[in-house]
Amino acid sequence: MNRVVHPIEQESFRRLRARLDTSHFPPLTRAVVERVIHSAADLEYAADLVTDEGDLVKAHAALHAGAPVVVDVEMVAAGITRRETVCRLKDAEAGPGLTRSAHAIRLAYEEVGPGALWVIGCAPTALEELLTLDASPALVIGLPVGFVGAAESKEALRASGLPAVSNVSEKGGSAVAAAALNALLYHPISHSEETS
């Protein structure tokens, strides 16, 4: 089923492209960059985001083949409009050396196992915990926000070698993390993905 795009959204993307040339990005990278910029009205994301088109192609295929989507908080889940998600934050408890967000990631991993897409837009400790697990993710969208631990956790994600979408600065958040996942959800499936 094709997604119906509202005229306001169409005009917003037209204005975005009038202010920023994104034509040099590969297709899925462009989709992610544009949707993140659109969600935050922040053109700086074009230079701040770190993606790999090959990772995005594999993640896109996994997502459309039904791989689970795990989020760190309900605000991220609320922004993902066309897919069920797993969020275990309400079941989690803080403990010595463990935040609720980190415990929720452990609980989610126990539920979904390897191969999921992980969307972290709030808690740096959730991203840090994910990096300690043998999650073999299809993709980690690591865009937590904040002045304490956010940039460092995203740097650790990039250093891990896992397939990822991240950014260099402290900015991020639930809306941009959901937008990055939505970009992959909304992007059409290519013929090569259908036959591979």
Score class of each variant (00 low, 15 high):
G66L: 08
A67L: 04
V76M: 10
T51Y: 03
V69L: 06
E74H: 10
V50E: 15
V69D: 08
V36L: 11
V70Y: 01
P68F: 03
G66Q: 10
I37H: 06
D55W: 13
E34Q: 13
L56K: 00
H60D: 13
V73W: 02
E44C: 00
V32I: 10
A77T: 15
A31I: 10
A41H: 02
D72Y: 12
A65V: 12
L49W: 13
A40L: 01
Y45D: 02
T51N: 00
H64A: 03
G54C: 04
D72Q: 06
V76N: 05
D48C: 05
D42M: 01
A31Y: 05
V71I: 10
D42Y: 04
E34T: 10
A46S: 15
V76H: 10
A31W: 10
D42F: 01
E34Y: 04
D48R: 08
E53G: 07
V73R: 02
L43D: 12
V73Q: 02
A59T: 13
V50F: 14
T51K: 06
A67P: 12
V70R: 03
P68W: 11
A46R: 03
A65S: 15
L63Q: 08
D52G: 09
L43G: 10
D42E: 07
D48N: 14
A47E: 14
I37V: 05
E74N: 14
V57K: 04
V36W: 03
I37S: 13
M75A: 15
M75T: 15
V76W: 04
M75Y: 14
V36D: 03
E53K: 03
S39I: 12
V69S: 00
S39R: 14
H38A: 02
